[in-house]
Design a protein around this nucleic acid. Structure first.
Length: 405
RNA sequence: GCGGCCGUAGCUCAAUUGGCAGAGCACCAGAUUGUGGCUCUGGGUGUUGCGGGUUCAAGUCCCGUCGGUCGCCCCA
């Protein structure tokens, strides 16, 4: 039996890697005073139809439950967040700064950096319209990557603005129904041949290419870049009008973070979505956020060997010579564990040589020899690294081990 | 959903024109009757992904299927 296509098993080393990644995410979010939340993995499909439109439906993992509800494994966190925020918006001081590490799902063929399931750090600032919030989010994303040891030679934040293109298209008199096609074409510039893009852009092609090559002055970019400059982060970012992002709900600054070598998919992406919350409660609430998945980032960190989890050492391996366990020894094991030490022993009788080999392969700090002498209050403790062994009274054991911490 | 490549032991892989399924690592046991990393010896742990077909004979060739991988579509 294997996991379903596109799903992963996390064996202990994989799980340790994942936990280390998550703990780093949490730590940096805490520094920016974001607090963690979560929501249901399963949502009504309607939640996603509300904002995404019908064509995205075949990408969603959805099915009929036993109550004949059409349910979906969450493909993204933002709709859940929007629903949660809308229901309790008034309770919270603004701006609301929340993060989550949801497991997300999509129904499509797996490929490099894209599985049917992944974990994605989501950071959002809600109730703040100022561009400073967008800058804060970019700052957070950059600091997270830097905390892993990635530098400006490793990644770049490519920043664009939906409003820039909206204004351009309005000025050119392009009907709103055609905007989607336009954004699709922009999005493909890096992958499709130039002639194909020119055909799709039609009369606007020449001007669009010029703008992308050398954007004209746009005050909002100035504000963002100035904000990054104040933080000495300008070298981590650049304006790039080719970034539009697929999601329909973005309304302002959008950005994606890529590895500089161009070997991987986007590491993170985000933007402002000021109109989305309105769909859930009618209230006009500004919001912005980004997502960062565990798959692409994990691939990069593994390639660069920047995140190598280590397992904690075993404190004590209890050796019963000749495999003869006794009640006092087993009680001592229980007492040591109650005192907070990790303790292991062989369940079945083993020769002493085997027991010590076990202790070593488990990376134990100490081997504790328990013989009949425990009845008189004595055991022998062996420091596995120094290979030194000595008799110690049972009542001094905990104190000694604590001192050694 | 579509296309390319791939599928042999727990892992990495080998097996000539179709001719007895193997190696290293890992694992288990012993050498060693109270003390760990080394060494030596022994053990193959397998439905060659699965199901058909061709053939005296299939890991090898053909068809189907499942899975992996890379790409397309789409991108949260």
């Amino acid at each position: 039996m294997q996991p379903l296509p596109g799903f992963r098993d996390f064996y202990p080393p994989d799980f340790a890697f994942r936990q280390l990644l998550f703990s780093r995410w949490r730590e940096i979010c805490r520094r920016f005073n974001f607090v963690e939340y979560d929501g249901p993995v399963l949502e009504s499909l309607e939640l996603y139809q509300k904002k995404s439109g019908e064509e995205i439906l075949n990408q969603i993992y959805h099915f009929l439950d036993k109550g004949n509800r059409i349910v979906a494994l969450r493909p993204e966190m933002t709709p859940t967040l929007a629903r949660m925020i809308e229901a309790h918006y008034k309770e919270y001081k603004k701006p609301i700064k929340w993060f989550s590490i949801p497991q997300l799902f999509r129904y499509e063929r797996a490929q490099k950096g894209r599985l049917r399931e992944h974990f994605q750090l989501n950071c959002d600032i809600i109730g703040e319209a100022d561009l400073e919030a967008d800058i804060e989010l970019m700052n957070l994303a950059i600091d997270i990557l830097r905390s892993f040891g990635l530098g400006k030679e490793d990644f770049i934040v490519r920043i664009s603005d939906r409003q820039f293109w909206s204004e351009f298209l309005t000025k050119k008199g392009v009907a709103i129904e055609e905007w989607y096609q336009f954004f699709q074409a922009i999005d493909k510039i890096e992958r499709d041949p130039k002639e194909e893009i020119e055909r799709r852009l039609g009369g606007l092609a020449k001007e669009v290419f010029e703008l992308i090559e050398k954007p004209c002055y746009w005050e909002r970019f100035d504000v963002v870049l100035e904000g990054l400059r104040h933080r000495k982060l300008e070298e981590y970012a650049r304006i790039d009008l080719r970034i539009v992002r697929g999601l329909a709900y973005y309304t302002g600054i959008v950005y994606e973070i890529f590895d500089k070598a161009g070997k991987f998919r986007a590491i993170a992406g985000g933007g402002r979505y000021d109109d989305l919350l309105k769909l859930f409660g009618g209230e006009d609430i500004p919001a912005a956020g980004f997502g960062m998945g565990d798959v692409v980032l994990g691939e990069i960190l593994k390639e660069k060997r920047l995140l190598e989890p280590s397992f904690p050492r075993l404190d004590v391996y209890v050796v019963f010579p000749e495999g003869k366990k006794n009640a006092l020894g087993l009680l001592l094991i229980e007492q040591l564990r109650s005192s907070g030490f990790s303790v292991e022993f062989s369940f079945h009788p083993l020769k002493m040589k085997k027991q010590l080999a076990q202790a070593q392969s488990l990376n134990a700090r100490f081997a504790l020899f328990v013989t009949e002498k425990i009845a008189e209050g004595f055991v022998e403790l062996k420091n596995m690294d120094e290979r030194k062994q000595f008799v110690i009274p049972v009542e001094q054991l905990v104190g000694f081990l604590e001192k050694k911490e």
